[in-house]
Design a binder for these strands. Structure first.
Length: 458
DNA sequence: TGCGAATTGCT
DNA sequence: GCAATTCGC
């Protein structure tokens, strides 16, 4: 009897899953395996919200497999060692998994390949599972990756997508392979109170609802903070409970300006991945350094703490930072504004902001998070000079009624727009009654105050 | 190789 | 509208 192993990573679904399909085609039985890799903790990118969401994903994957006559095998330890152990126990010939695009993922993949080949087994790594268009598929004439989104997108849009696979009817799993008990997360004090549920079932429910109501209006509503009309697919895309290939295909079939704008945003995921695949160090180092001498924990402790806890005195910034902690999620427009505020207005090292986001975001993703932070900090792929988003101007534009601010900052619940966005302009007595902090910095002198610290090195 | 384009801010 | 930088053709 032929047995193959499907190693699940950031692809926790049964629908449109090329490694699972290939494993089923190659063997009479498969072992669907997930390894809680101890080494992930050491990357510094693991976090309570994502661990809780992951528990939901695994529980749902397990029940999906059980409905099809199988089950999910979960192990803990060193990923390479555990996969080898399972391969031996099941006497499997081959292992199928999807490609990762961080340095951690590619190094781990190579270790696994060597270990398996030494044991006479084969590793198959599948592309186009966690992205629609894999890194390296399209490149500019002069480089191994695109550094500007628009020319990338023009080519990306021309790439023929592979067909989307359906959900397998039956998955038989050999009985002799054992694993840990799988159950949905029980919640803990570390986890955001309004964390969304994980798992492919929840993801597909969200797609159905969004396709019915949200997608058509995406172009017009995606930047409206109060409407909160975005898809909220991001955690599902991060954990792979949704397939990017399937989403792009379905959106294109749907058609219209909303679907087009939505597909364009999905292309940003692939764009950031092809940058990170070519420049893995961009997860921690400047992609294009400007030799900034950032303020740090040591020199800006109070400002950083005010930003983290949502007490900067800029209502929109504070609303967004509180939403992040409460939901483990933040509106994309708010991510740009809070990042600009920390990196450009407070002139704090983007890594400090990126680390805070990765701690709380349930969709926290090395490629998207780090490269978006770099984009906003001016060290990334955006070349435009000194782009500072003004938190008051942007608040009036994207939250004109102040609804978003009042939703997250109860101190300002009784203040109307436009003053809700600049409460320091309220008459003295009204302002004193608010119990809301004064701005940590004047917008006008923000950059000037720190610019002396910024200079080119010889 | 000159030129359009880039999740924009400020006048 | 202009700012004023870099990519990619």
């Amino acid at each position: 009897m032929h047995v193959s192993v499907v190693l699940f990573t950031s692809d926790l679904r049964l629908t449109d899953h090329p490694p699972l399909r290939a494993a089923l085609d190659a063997a009479d039985a498969v072992v669907p395996l997930f390894v809680r890799d101890r080494a992930v903790e050491a990357t510094g990118f693991a976090a309570p919200n994502r661990n809780a969401f992951l528990d939901d994903c695994l529980a749902d994957l397990d029940s999906g497999l059980r409905e099809r006559g199988g089950r999910l095998v979960v192990r803990s330890g060193d990923l390479v060692a555990e996969v080898c152990r399972v391969v031996t126990e099941a006497d499997a010939d081959e292992v199928h998994m999807s490609a990762g695009h961080t340095r951690f993922a590619t190094v781990r993949e190579e270790r696994l390949r060597s270990a398996l080949e030494a044991a006479g087994r084969r590793l198959f790594v599948h592309d186009a599972v966690t992205v629609a268009v894999p890194p390296g598929t399209v490149t500019p004439a002069s480089s191994d990756h695109f550094a500007v989104f628009t020319p990338y997108y023009r080519q990306w849009a021309q790439v023929p997508l592979r067909p989307a696979f359906g959900t397998p009817r039956r998955v038989s799993v050999p009985e002799e392979v054992g694993g840990e008990k799988v159950s949905a997360h029980g919640g803990s004090s570390e986890v955001s109170p309004a964390l969304p549920p994980g798992g492919e079932s929840a993801a597909r429910g969200r797609v159905t609802a969004y396709w019915r109501r949200g997608l058509g209006a995406y172009e017009d509503t995606r930047d409206d903070l109060a409407a909160d009309a975005t898809s909220r697919f991001s955690p599902h895309l991060h954990f792979g409970t949704l397939s990017p290939v399937e989403l792009v295909r379905r959106a294109r079939r749907h058609g219209g300006p909303g679907a087009e704008a939505f597909v364009r945003q999905l292309a940003w995921r692939d764009f950031h991945r092809q940058v990170l695949a070519a420049r893995p160090d961009a997860a921690r180092a400047d992609y294009r350094t400007k030799h900034d001498r950032w303020r740090t924990e040591r020199t800006a402790a109070e400002d950083i703490e005010a930003w983290r806890t949502g007490r900067t005195g800029y209502p929109l910034i504070d609303a967004a930072m509180r939403q992040l902690r409460h939901e483990g999620w933040m509106h994309n427009r708010a991510r740009l504004l809070t990042a600009s505020f920390l990196a450009k207005t407070l002139y704090v090292d983007w890594r400090i902001g990126a680390a805070h986001f990765l701690h709380w975001l349930v969709d926290g993703d090395v490629a998207n998070n780090q490269l978006n932070w770099q984009w906003m900090a001016g060290t990334g792929t955006d070349t435009r000079p000194n782009r500072v988003l003004n938190p008051v101007t942007q608040a009036k534009k994207y939250d004109p009624e102040g609804t978003y601010v009042r939703r997250w900052v109860p101190e300002l619940a009784g203040v109307d727009a436009p003053l809700v966005h600049e409460p320091w302009k309220l008459p003295g007595l009204d302002r004193a009654a608010l119990d809301y902090p004064d701005p940590v910095i004047e917008l006008s002198d923000g950059l000037d105050r720190f610019r002396h610290a910024r200079g080119k090195q010889p």
